[in-house]
Each structure stands twice: as structure tokens, then as C-alpha cells.
């Protein structure tokens, strides 16, 4: 994997950041294509094992956003 192509697994809360991502798309804002979004029903659904699992399966970084 080249350094210019990283994978950031992003856990986004349905009601907050996922909405923001949606709005960013609708507003045609540009952002790096490094993130892989996973929608979670609430930030409270987050668990440490998701983070470790993501890293284990080859993610370069994990981002949790509420």
C-alpha cells in the first residue's frame, strides 16, 4: 500500500456526523477519499472491539465521531 492511499475506518453516528457527511455531499464539498464510512445508530453503539477489529483487518487508522 502506498503512503498516498490510506484507509481510515470511520464510525459515524447516524444523527450527528453521518448527517454532516450527508450534508457535505449534498453541498458538494470536497474531502479526501481515504475514509470508509460505517454508520452506527448512535455513538453509544461504539465498542473498543470495533476499533481493534478494524485495525486487525488492515485499517490504517480509526475515526469515531459523534
Amino acid at each position: 500500500m502506498s503512503e498516498n492511499n490510506v484507509k481510515i475506518v470511520s464510525f459515524l453516528c447516524n444523527w450527528c456526523s453521518y448527517g454532516a457527511a450527508d450534508l457535505a455531499g449534498v453541498s458538494r464539498l470536497e474531502y479526501p477519499a481515504d475514509i470508509r464510512v460505517i454508520r452506527i445508530p448512535c455513538s453509544g453503539r461504539m465498542s473498543p472491539k470495533f476499533i481493534l477489529s478494524a485495525l486487525r483487518e488492515g485499517a490504517d487508522a480509526v475515526w469515531v465521531s459523534g
Binding site: W15, C16, S17, Y18, G19, A20, A21, D22, L23, A24, V26, S27, L29, I51, A61, V62, W63, V64, S65, G66
Partner: peptide, 11 residues
């Protein structure tokens, strides 16, 4: 590992 807080209006 990153944590952040973004409202749905803050595109």
C-alpha cells in the same frame, strides 16, 4: 485513533 464531535449541520 481519532475521536471527534460534529453536529449534523456542520458539513
Amino acid at each position: 485513533i481519532h475521536f471527534s464531535w460534529i453536529s449534523s449541520a456542520e458539513a
